[in-house]
């Protein structure tokens, strides 16, 4: 599903990640690693937010050569999402649905599941960090992407939202969606069944079988 070819990420002269070759198969993947081991960097590279050397292919689509088609299959939710304070959830949902060609109503349904639909038309400056996190999760699921990248999805949110998030992840996985999830929190195996484990250490990523 996801293939890395001679991927290198440098910050100035510092080599942060070096992945000569790696293939990640479909499923729900847990990306583990200590702070600063390159987990977020990896997710941002896969999401097209960080430039890097080499290439990443998703179902044969290259991020370098077929960027738009590639990006339409990938979604990313940041650990601590930042959005302009003057825009509303409505503005963001419309932008995502327009670019990902998906239904606004489906996104609004997810907002209802996360109990933030009442604030749909409020500026995001009035949102708490937990509400912003929930909104970023809704945006990540918008457009039924093939691969969803979730950076620490279980922090900041309340217990009910955690249940909802796990439920949506499992539903999406049942429909064929794949995930790469980073989490420092131990995840209950009853809530999410991981199919792969990736470990970020020594400036590279390796795969462990479960």
């Amino acid at each position: 599903m996801l293939h890395f070819e001679n991927v290198q990420k440098e910050y100035g002269n510092f080599l942060a990640l070096d992945i000569p070759t790696l293939t990640i198969s479909k499923g729900i993947c847990w990306l583990k690693g200590e702070n600063g081991s390159g987990k977020t960097t990896l997710l941002k590279m896969v999401a097209g937010l960080h430039p890097f050397k080499g290439d990443i292919l998703l179902n044969g689509l290259s991020i370098k050569k077929q960027r738009q088609a590639y990006l339409s299959q990938v979604s990313y939710a940041e650990a601590e999402p930042l959005y302009p304070s003057f825009i509303t959830a409505e503005d963001l949902i419309k932008l995502y649905c327009q670019t990902k060609k998906s239904s606004i109503e489906a996104a609004r349904d997810m907002l209802r599941q996360f109990n933030i639909h009442d604030d749909y038309k409020k500026p995001l400056g009035a949102y708490s960090s937990g509400m912003l996190k929930k909104l970023s999760l809704v945006l990540a699921f918008t457009g039924s992407p093939q691969l969803v990248l979730l950076d620490e999805p279980f922090i900041t949110i309340d217990a009910e939202a955690l249940e909802t998030t796990c439920g949506i992840i499992m539903q999406h996985a049942a429909k064929g969606g794949s995930f790469i999830i980073t989490s420092h929190q131990p995840v209950n195996s009853g809530q999410i069944s991981f199919t792969n484990i990736l470990v970020a250490e020594n400036r590279t990523i390796s795969s462990l079988s479960i």
């Binding site: 990938v74 930042l82 990902k100």
Partner: peptide, 16 residues
């Protein structure tokens, strides 16, 4: 600066 800090997510959207 604003685009880099608050609109960085736009880079990951499938826009030509």
């Amino acid at each position: 600066e604003f685009e880099e800090e608050y609109l960085s997510f736009v880079r990951g959207l499938p826009i030509t």
